[in-house]
């Protein structure tokens, strides 16, 4: 099922196009990376999905239905610029935000209890937000985002300000939620996280979609047919035609092959020459490299 579909979304601020005919679909249960450099229009897209803004043209479908305000109760949004009421107590604050998402007071209390227990932070309940560290309030913000068990989660830079332990905690929660079938839109600048977490991405720049696909498919699409071989002894004297060495260190070589060639041929060549091979891998571009190239090309 398609959880969220954007069809030809257009949003203009004066003469500036913040979203220029953007379309993409997110199947349910996926962790979907929404990427783009600063000012690319990611926040505008997210704000339209969360009904903070309305598109000038185009259509957004939520689980097949045209997106309305009612759907916002089924969406959880953690913006990059986070904030909570400083003077409010953690427990009260979470209950308040949960009730705004449509939970009854009793439900809200119960869920707050559950999450505070889960994160082992029960003793924070009566602390005011201003007493918390940045990382601590980040956790509260995360709870506030998921407390109403939304079908679609939008997380904008969810790991910023978190220490490695808490990052891991949130990451495992994200995976857990994904396993439960929730759809997650993950917006970040940290590409290594995209690679680790997301199954699909869309890349936007200057309000336009410039790339879309699954992480593995994109890596394949943008690969440069390079292979890394680690070996001992001497490099075989004559490489096969169509292959050329682009980088060589002691016992490591990076070989560029032509489009038509297959890595197996290269490996066979090493084996035939009786060179002991320790590792052999195709070098795929990182999402970061793809991102930079595409943005620069655009």
């Amino acid at each position: 099922m398609i959880q969220l579909a954007l069809h030809n979304i257009l949003k203009q601020y004066g003469s500036y196009l913040a979203a220029d005919n953007v379309s993409f679909e997110i199947p349910s249960g996926k962790i979907f990376g929404l990427l783009g450099p600063n000012g690319a229009g990611k926040t505008t897209l997210i704000r339209m999905i969360t009904r903070i803004l309305y598109p000038d043209a185009g259509q957004i479908l939520f689980a097949g239905q045209s997106l309305t305000d009612l759907h916002t109760q089924r969406i959880g949004y953690m913006p990059e610029e986070r904030g909570l009421y400083k003077k409010m107590k953690v427990g009260e604050h979470l209950i308040y935000l949960a009730r705004l998402k449509g939970l009854t007071k009793a439900q809200a209390i119960q869920r707050v209890e559950f999450w505070l227990n889960k994160f082992e932070i029960k003793e924070w309940r009566n602390k005011t937000i201003e007493e918390l560290s940045k990382g601590m309030s980040q956790k509260i913000q995360f709870i506030a985002t998921v407390i109403h068990e939304p079908e679609l989660l939008i997380l904008d830079e969810p790991f910023s300000g978190l220490d490695p332990i808490n990052s891991l905690l949130i990451e495992s929660e994200i995976r857990e939620l994904s396993k439960q079938g929730k759809t997650i839109i993950f917006s970040t600048h940290r590409m290594e996280q995209v690679e680790e977490i997301c199954s699909d991405i869309v890349l936007v720049n200057k309000g336009r979609k410039i790339l879309e696909g699954s992480v593995s498919e994109l890596k394949q699409r943008f690969k440069e047919n390079k292979f890394e071989v680690k070996f001992s002894g001497e490099l075989p004297p004559n490489l096969l035609s169509g292959f050329s060495v682009v980088e060589q260190q002691m016992n490591r070589v990076i070989v560029q092959s032509g489009e038509a060639n297959h890595g197996n041929d290269l490996l066979k060549h090493f084996l035939n020459a009786n060179v002991p091979v320790h590792s052999f891998q195709e070098l795929l571009p990182s999402i970061n490299e793809i991102f930079i190239k595409q943005v620069e090309a655009a």
């Binding site: 969360t50 009904r51 903070i52 916002t72 109760q73 969406i75 949004y77 953690m78 913006p79 610029e81 986070r82 904030g83 909570l84 009421y85 400083k86 935000l97 705004l100 998402k101 913000q141 506030a144």
Partner: peptide, 12 residues
């Protein structure tokens, strides 16, 4: 200034 408004306006 506390930026909570972004969270709030995604709910109400």
């Amino acid at each position: 200034t506390s930026r909570i408004v972004e969270v709030l306006t995604s709910s109400v």
